[in-house]
Design a protein around this nucleic acid. Structure first.
Length: 283
DNA sequence: AGCCAGGACAAGT
DNA sequence: ACTTGTCATGGC
């Protein structure tokens, strides 16, 4: 019932945070490695740390096998310093976004590792979310570092660049395997530097990423938004295209550009999952 | 059974 | 600069 014993066995980080919905945040298609547990908590791996996350009484409670920078990583990962209330208030001046936010109010845009985001969204192309999760899971199990609790870290580009396309056959990733290899090679050789992307203009950063085979504007934008903290990036996939065609025939409001990526994520989740959205067919 | 999936690419206008 | 067929695989 209390978790003092557990806390002594596992490192625990407690972060006060307002208006987060873990179900929406982990299940809105921005990350692919967290799984909901029977007790409503979520377990997953990021930054080579396996953690369990739950949210109770305004506190985000993270338990796991973290290192010294445990708090720093997860503080950033959950975008704690951003004032979502302020952003949501601003976005709600638009009628469509107001509806989307009423549904997707608890989403926060996570700060994932750049390489994992890049690789994940290479895999995402012309693919569906359940299968993306499967491929990424097999990628980690086959080539990622095994952690002490039996889970696996996301494999590094240095590891993957040594592999052939045939080596990736167990992933069943189809035509995307050659893209994964090319990305691993270009990143590990420094031909593409993921660390500097967050300081470049969107156009330059996008051009840098597109040097990788299988990376177009959409995958590049998702990498920048989810892996580099560029919330001014607005990835346009099939769902957002439908949203724009249906709700914004005259263009998306330019005043939202500085945090368009956050707006995009509300709209994406709303369009895909909200039964009351006319774009949503099923699920 | 058949359509489609958080697209990119090459080849063709 | 735009449009179209193709690419593996499997979820629904």
């Amino acid at each position: 019932m209390n978790n003092i014993g557990v806390a002594s066995a596992f490192k625990t980080v407690v972060i006060p945070i307002n208006d987060i919905d873990l179900d929406a945040t982990f299940d809105c298609g921005q990350c692919f490695r967290f799984e909901r547990q029977n007790d409503g908590s979520w377990s997953g791996v990021a930054f080579t740390q396996s953690v369990n996350v739950r949210y109770e009484d305004g506190l985000l409670i993270i338990t796991g096998t973290g290192g010294a920078d445990f708090e720093k990583i997860w503080h950033s990962y959950f975008d704690v310093d951003r004032d979502y209330l302020l952003i949501k208030h601003s976005l709600s001046s638009d009628a469509v976004l107001k509806r989307a936010i009423a549904y997707a109010w608890g989403i926060r845009v996570l700060h994932q590792e750049p390489w994992e985001a890049l690789c994940s969204f290479i895999i995402s192309q012309n693919n569906n979310i359940p299968r993306i999760k499967g491929i990424i899971s097999r990628l980690c199990e086959n080539f990622g570092q095994k952690l002490e609790d039996g889970t696996y870290a996301f494999p590094s580009p240095q590891t993957l660049c040594e592999l052939s396309i045939d080596d990736l056959a167990p992933l069943r990733s189809g035509f995307r395997a050659k893209y994964i290899i090319d990305a691993a090679k270009k990143v590990s050789l420094g031909e593409v530097n993921l660390e500097t992307l967050s300081k470049m203009t969107i156009e330059d950063a996008r051009a840098e990423l597109i040097k990788i085979k299988g990376v177009g504007t959409k995958v590049a934008d998702c990498t920048l938004l989810f892996g580099c903290g560029r919330v001014d990036c607005f990835p346009i996939d099939v769902w957002i295209k439908r949203v724009l065609d249906c709700f914004y025939p005259n263009g998306f409001p330019v005043e939202f550009a500085p945090f368009g990526g956050i707006a995009q994520q509300y709209l994406f989740h709303y369009a895909r999952c909200c039964p009351e959205c006319e774009l949503n067919g099923r699920e």
